[in-house]
Design a protein around this nucleic acid. Structure first.
Ligand SMILES: NC(=O)c1ccc[n+]([C@@H]2O[C@H](COP(=O)([O-])OP(=O)(O)OC[C@H]3O[C@@H](n4cnc5c(N)ncnc54)[C@H](O)[C@@H]3O)[C@@H](O)[C@H]2O)c1
Ligand SMILES: NC(=O)c1ccc[n+]([C@@H]2O[C@H](COP(=O)([O-])OP(=O)(O)OC[C@H]3O[C@@H](n4cnc5c(N)ncnc54)[C@H](O)[C@@H]3O)[C@@H](O)[C@H]2O)c1
Lengths: 226, 226
DNA sequence: AGACGTTTGTGAAGCCATGCACAAAGTTGA
DNA sequence: TCAACTTTGTGCATGGCTTCACAAACGTCT
């Protein structure tokens, strides 16, 4: 009678980070009418080793069939459940500048259980504007809004100097999952989860490797060999 | 006479990923006129352990002074050099939709050696439009453009189905560093570096932890104990 | 029914990253 | 000049993740 291992065991962070990619690939296969895949095929499509894929999936339970592979629909459903995507996650975006607008009008994540329910910005010029049918409100209305329609995830798309203050408000309103686009480190109480997406960091990592490649190709070592 | 260790030794990926954050924090301290920091202070500001900070920095060389700490300006410069930010990195963006526009008009990364030199989009309605003084061109002009003004880093902001084709063109033009915003796994030849930024993945990881917290708080275990 | 080929699930080993603890190295003050 | 204090740089232990390799499990074909 032991239920879903996803809810009992601990799933390693590294595995959780890969599950969305597995799910996306499985969804595409399902659309294409593919009924089942082997770990080898799926791993190739995702760009990981098959052993890693199998170990990752083993943390969710045993949904494969030996000698055959995995049923695409079943596996997709199980990953969705493990990630919590069978539930509905109301999202609020704070900071409706360039990025906030792009995020709000982005249809990509509405499809997967994430639903934008509120948009906030303190600029009077923006308050009242409607984006995808949701009116932008001042952040001071967060609590009211929150009372009517709960918010699970807060997205911060304000400039960096405002990020901590915005974060504090979100946490104060009981939101414990935050996605931060501002280049700032946020201090939050225990139990609150912050993930950061940073453009600049990604470019800098690319630059590092590009430099290494340039040095390796151009002048080996760049310095004397001795 | 052994030169800059950053160029000789291997710097662990995990360290490279943290260097941009150290650099950002150091830049802020420099602006505030802070002359030096201890590993303890800097680590606290960035949100890591001081031991980890010291080990990370030790991969670049020995730029601290025992009993004192690190000179803010010097350390910032050394990290910049290690990351390759003392050079200039010309960037091209492909796909000037919502996200592409936001990226192009984002001033945040122009400041750090990254310079947007070309914008591409195949939509005739967009071609010719100027964003931050750069005209949008069709992707077919990539090679010409490239010949005149070299491009080091390509940013893909097209829909997922077009991503692989766009990627192939970029690689064909000799670009070996790619930042991909489309939810697609890109196949590239060896030596080409691809990093992906995925909104959806980040939200799904947040959802996973939110679900775990909800289960832990609400009904411990959710299933029978036996 | 039984043998054969295929693929999963997982112990075990190896690898990398993190955290600890301290000697070495520097500063300050007497 | 020397002792006391501070902080770095690093050897070592620890823990987690990845990869290997294979027995167990399943389907298929005769
Ligand atoms: N635009 C991009 O492509 C991009 C890329 C990566 C990161 N970022 C980061 O995302 C954030 C937003 O970028 P952007 O280009 O959209 O900036 P932006 O200036 O266009 O928009 C910021 C918005 O936040 C609002 N705001 C400021 N303080 C606020 C507060 N206290 N409460 C509520 N709203 C507030 C402003 O009114 C403005 O509308 C920045 O931190 C930026 O560094 C942007
Ligand atoms: N908008 C967001 O906030 C957001 C967030 C996360 C990820 N993304 C991803 O970023 C990508 C772009 O998102 P968007 O909202 O800007 O989409 P969009 O539809 O607004 O823009 C896509 C642009 O790409 C262009 N394009 C299509 N095929 C092309 C080709 N072969 N060559 C050159 N240009 C081409 C189109 O003409 C269009 O202008 C998508 O993959 C999306 O999933 C967007």
């Amino acid at each position: 009678m032991s239920a879903d291992p996803a809810l009992r065991r601990e799933i390693p962070d590294a595995t959780v980070a890969r599950l969305p990619e597995y799910l996306r690939t499985l969804s595409r296969l399902a659309e294409d009418g593919v009924p089942s895949v082997s770990s080898e095929e799926l791993a190739a499509a995702v760009g990981v080793r098959s052993a890693q894929l199998r170990k990752d999936l083993s943390h969710l339970g045993s949904y494969g069939v030996r000698g055959v592979g995995y049923d695409v629909e079943t596996l997709a459903l199980e990953i969705s459940r493990a990630l919590g995507l069978t539930e509905d996650w109301p999202v609020a975006i704070v900071g409706m500048g360039n990025l906030g607008h792009a995020l709000a009008s982005y249809s990509g994540f509405v499809t997967k259980g994430f639903r934008i329910v509120a948009l906030f910005d303190d600029d009077p010029a923006l308050v009242g504007e409607r984006v995808v049918d949701i009116a932008i409100r001042p952040l001071s209305e967060l609590d009211d809004k929150h009372a009517v329609d709960p918010i699970s995830i807060g997205v911060i798309a304000t400039p960096a100097p405002a990020a901590q203050a915005v974060c504090d408000r979100l946490v104060g309103a009981g939101i414990s999952s935050i996605l931060n686009f501002a280049p700032a480190v946020l201090a939050v109480p225990e139990g609150v989860d912050v993930r950061r997406v940073d453009l600049s960091t990604e470019l800098q990592i690319l630059a590092f490797h590009a430099q290494r490649k340039a040095l390796a190709a151009g002048h080996l070592g760049a310095a004397v060999l001795s």
